[in-house]
């Protein structure tokens, strides 16, 4: 399916990006170029091939359930665009 301005708007919303109407057509064209290239994947015979998410067959390591990280709240808040009383500050979400 080809991407048009409507699909761009939907996907942009999913990704929380703002796309200007003026750029939407050109962006659709570029995305369609990319998807046309990606469509070569349809040539492959993938019958009975398990998807591979990781190059090496390893499992996630486990560790003891103990506190191992230091408390870095102040360091983390220092680099926040807006913080107050030990919290990140965002526009009001609950009236």
């Amino acid at each position: 399916m080809a991407i048009d301005s409507k699909v761009v708007a939907q996907v942009a919303h999913l990704a929380r990006l703002k796309v200007d109407e003026a750029d939407s057509a050109a962006l659709s064209d570029r995305l369609n170029d990319i998807l046309a290239m990606v469509d070569q994947l349809q040539q492959a015979d993938v019958t009975d091939v398990a998807p591979m998410a990781h190059p090496l067959d390893v499992t996630q390591p486990l560790r003891e359930d103990e506190v191992s990280e230091p408390n870095v709240r102040d360091k983390a808040l220092d680099i926040a665009p807006a913080a107050e009383d030990g919290c990140f500050l965002v526009p009001r979400v609950i009236e």
């Binding site: 991407i3 699909v7 761009v8 996907v11 942009a12 999913l14 990704a15 990006l17 962006l27 995305l31 990319i34 998807l35 990606v38 994947l41 349809q42 492959a44 993938v46 091939v49 398990a50 998807p51 591979m52 998410a53």
Partner: peptide, 26 residues
């Protein structure tokens, strides 16, 4: 980001993401 969000979105996951991971194994 848009290509990725599209490839992962409902209805396209199998055609794109799953297939790409199968090809990755090949």
């Amino acid at each position: 980001i848009l290509v990725g969000a599209y490839a992962l979105s409902a209805g396209y996951y199998d055609a794109y993401y799953r297939r790409a991971q199968q090809v990755r194994r090949l």
